[in-house]
Design a protein around this nucleic acid. Structure first.
Length: 558
RNA sequence: GUCCCAGUAGCUCAGCCGGACAGAGCAACGGACUUCUAAUCCGUGGGUCGGGGGUUCGAAUCCCUCCUGGGACGCCA
C-alpha cells in the first residue's frame, strides 16, 4: 500500500518528466538525459508542500540559467488530477508546488482502515534476511552492550519484517573453544572451593560471582560426586551443566526484555558436523590458505584486510574465526539473501576479514552487512558507573530491566543512532517525569485511548466520515505528519535505523499533544466530533504501529 | 603508528546518499488545569555545525589536512 505522500510525489515527478519531454519537443530545451532529480518536502513552509531541484540539475547540460529552465518547465507542466494550487519558481531554481491545504486528509480513513497494517511496505519483496544479534558468550550474564544489541537487533528485524522482508532472528552461541575451557576451569575452582578444597580461579578465567552460585547449584544436585573424578571429566560435566544454566538465564532475560529468537545456533555444532573442516578445505582449494610457523593462515589481505588471520593454531585447534567463517557459509547455504550482523564496536576489526572470507568462499560480500554499534556508558547520579569484565562486576540486563523498566530501557537503546556512543542515564530512564522522553509517546497513545473510551455514540465507518470540519493548522499539521509514516518505515528499513523511527514518533506525539491542548475532540457538534475522532484514531494507529516496531508497549491507560 | 566511530545550543543528541534563513529533548526564564489524563501545552532566550583548505550554482553534509575524545589492531572471542 502506498501512502498519499508517496503517491503525490510520484505523480509530480512524472509530470515534471513529461514537461521536460514537452519542452524538448517544442525546442525550448535541448534533448538530454533526465537527471536523477528529487521531489522533496522543503524545510520551510513558505517554499510550498513539495519542491523539485530538476531545473538546477539540467542547467549544465542545457547551458542555461536554472531559473530560466524552471520557467520553461512550469509552462509545460500538466498537473491534471494533482491537487496543486500554485507553482512557483524560487531561490536558485527550485520549482515549488503549493497544494490545496487539506490535500492530505483523504489519508486519514485509509490509516484507520489499514490499522495494524498501516505503513507495511513491500520493498523487501519477500527477500529472506537473517539478523544475528546479541550472540553473547554463554559464560555469564548479559551486560549493557548486549542489551543495546538486543534492543537494536530486535527493532531492526521488526522494521525489516514490516518493510516486506522474511526475517529470521538468530543468536549464535559461542559454546566452543578456549573460553569454554577457561569457563570450565573457573567453575572447577569454585566447585572445589565450595567443597573446602584450595583452588583459585585462573587469571584468564571468569571471576564473576555468578559462577559461585552456579557451582553451588551444581553441588546441590551432585554433591561431592566429582571431587575425586578425573579433572577432565569434572570440568566437562561442570561446563555442560553451567552452559545450560547460563543459556537458560540469558534466554529468560531476553524474553523479559521482549526479545525472542527464531534460531539459537551452536558453534559447537559446526565442529561436530564437520562444517568447519569442510569450510577450511574449500578455502584451501581456492588457494587462500598457507602455512606459517606451524599454523594455518587465511590470506585476508587479499581482500583488503589489514593482516592475515590464523584459522588453525599450531596445536591443531581451529580458531573462533574459522568457526565463524563456517557459520557464515552455513547462513548463505540456508538461503539467506541478506545477512545482517549487529556487532559491538570492539569487533569492528573483524569486519574486513569476515567479508573477505565470504568473498573467498564465492559469496557476495555485499550481502553481508555489519551494523557496528558503539559502546554504552552507564551513568548514575551524574557519575560514570565503572564496569569491570575481569572481576565480573557490571550491571546486568536483568538488573537494568528491574531498575528502569523494559520500555524505558528499550527506548533509551534505540533513541540514539547505533554509531553514536550511548550515555545511558539510569536516573533519567527511571524518572517518571517530563524529563523522561519515554513516556511522552506512550502518554499520547493513552490519552487517545481515553478519548475513544469516552465516546459512546456509534461511529460511521472511516471512509464515510466527513473530513470537512478539519481545517485548523494543528489538525492539518498532525494529519500531514501521520501520512509520512509509510515513507518513514521504508527509510528506517533502508538505513537499518530504528532511532529515526523513535524521533518520528516523538514528533507525532508532540503534534498530537499540541492539537489536544487547543481542540476538544468530544463536542456537541457530532460532525466535528466524528472528524476529530477519526484524526485521533489515525494518530493512535501510527503511534501503536511505531511503538510495536521499537518493541515498546502502547498502554491504554497511564 | 594504522584502521573504525564521534566532535553541531549550557547538557544529551538528530540532520550527513549536497539544496533555499541549522533542529529536537532536557536545563533556564515567563505563562496555561471548574472542560476529553498537566507524564501535557503556549511563549522567550541560546550555535565560529572542532580548525584550515578544496569541489560545487549551492557544503553541517563530499574530498584533503590538522586537532580532540572513544574503540580496534591476540595462534582471545
Amino acid at each position: 500500500m502506498k501512502g498519499i505522500v508517496q503517491e503525490i510525489r510520484e505523480r509530480l515527478a512524472a509530470a515534471l518528466e513529461s514537461a521536460v519531454n514537452q519542452a524538448a519537443a517544442k525546442g525550448l530545451l535541448p534533448v538530454t538525459a533526465l537527471p536523477p532529480f528529487t521531489v522533496e518536502v522543503p524545510r520551510e513552509k513558505e517554499h510550498g508542500d513539495f519542491a523539485a531541484n530538476l531545473a538546477m540539475l539540467l542547467a549544465r547540460a542545457a547551458r542555461s540559467a536554472p531559473r530560466r529552465i524552471a520557467e520553461v518547465l512550469v509552462n509545460c507542466l500538466d498537473l491534471t488530477g494533482i491537487p496543486v494550487e500554485k507553482v512557483e519558481v524560487a531561490g536558485p531554481g527550485f520549482i515549488n508546488f503549493y497544494l490545496h491545504p487539506r490535500w492530505v486528509l483523504p489519508e486519514l480513513p485509509r490509516i484507520v482502515q489499514a490499522g495494524d497494517d498501516y505503513g507495511r511496505a513491500d520493498v523487501g519483496g519477500g527477500m529472506r534476511v537473517q539478523v544475528e544479534f546479541v550472540s553473547a558468550n554463554p559464560t555469564g550474564l548479559l551486560h549493557m552492550g548486549n542489551a543495546r544489541g538486543a534492543a537494536l537487533g530486535d527493532s531492526i528485524a521488526a522494521i525489516l519484517e514490516f518493510a516486506g522482508y522474511r526475517v529470521t532472528r538468530e543468536y549464535y552461541i559461542n559454546d566452543a573453544g578456549n573460553q569454554i575451557e577457561n569457563f570450565a576451569r573457573s567453575l572447577e575452582a569454585r566447585y572445589l572451593q565450595l567443597l573446602g578444597r584450595p583452588a583459585e580461579v585462573p587469571e584468564e578465567g571468569y571471576h564473576g560471582e555468578d559462577l559461585i552460585d552456579t557451582a553451588r547449584n551444581f553441588v546441590a544436585l551432585y554433591g561431592d560426586r566429582y571431587l575425586e573424578a578425573p579433572a577432565e571429566e569434572r570440568r566437562r560435566v561442570l561446563a555442560e551443566y553451567a552452559l545450560k544454566e547460563k543459556l537458560a538465564a540469558i534466554r529468560r532475560a531476553l524474553e523479559d526484555f521482549g526479545v525472542r529468537f527464531d534460531v539459537w545456533f551452536s558453534e559447537q555444532s559446526l565442529h561436530d558436523s564437520g562444517e568447519v573442516e569442510e569450510t577450511i578445505a574449500i578455502l584451501r582449494e581456492r588457494g587462500y590458505l598457507y602455512e606459517h610457523e606451524g599454523a594455518l593462515w587465511f590470506r585476508a589481505t587479499a581482500f583488503g584486510a589489514e593482516k592475515d588471520e590464523v584459522l588453525v593454531r599450531k596445536n591443531g585447534v581451529p580458531t573462533y574465526f574459522a568457526a565463524d567463517i563456517a557459520y557464515h557459509r552455513n547462513k548463505f547455504r540456508r538461503g539467506f539473501e541478506r545477512i545482517i550482523n549487529i556487532w559491538g564496536a570492539d569487533h569492528h576489526g573483524h569486519v574486513a576479514r569476515m567479508k573477505g572470507a565470504v568473498a573467498a568462499l564465492g559469496y557476495d560480500p555485499g550481502a553481508l552487512e555489519i551494523v557496528i554499534m558503539q559502546l554504552v556508558r552507564l551513568y548514575r547520579g551524574g557519575e560514570l558507573v565503572r564496569m569491570s569484565k575481569r572481576t565480573g562486576r557490571f550491571v546486568t540486563l536483568e538488573e537494568l530491566v528491574e531498575e528502569v523498566g523494559r520500555d524505558a530501557a528499550r527506548y533509551f537503546f534505540v533513541m540514539r543512532s547505533a554509531d553514536s556512543h550511548l550515555d545511558f542515564d539510569l536516573d533519567l530512564a527511571k524518572a517518571q517525569s517530563n524529563e523522561n522522553p519515554v513516556y511522552y509517546i506512550q502518554y499520547a497513545h493513552a490519552r487517545i485511548c481515553s478519548i475513544l473510551r469516552q465516546n459512546n455514540a456509534p461511529l460511521p465507518p472511516p471512509e464515510a466520515v466527513d473530513l470537512g470540519p478539519l481545517e485548523t493548522e494543528a489538525e492539518l499539521a498532525l494529519a500531514r505528519r501521520l501520512a509520512d509514516f509509510p515513507e518513514e518505515v521504508v527509510a528506517c528499513a533502508r538505513d537499518l535505523a530504528p532511532h529515526r523511527l523513535a524521533r518520528y514518533l516523538h514528533e507525532v506525539a508532540g503534534l498530537f499533544h499540541s492539537f489536544y491542548n487547543s481542540h476538544r475532540v468530544l463536542t456537541a457538534d457530532r460532525r466535528l466530533t466524528e472528524a476529530r475522532l477519526l484524526l485521533a484514531g489515525a494518530t493512535r494507529v501510527v503511534l501503536k504501529n511505531g511503538l510495536r516496531l521499537l518493541g515498546l508497549s502502547a498502554p491504554e491507560r497511564m
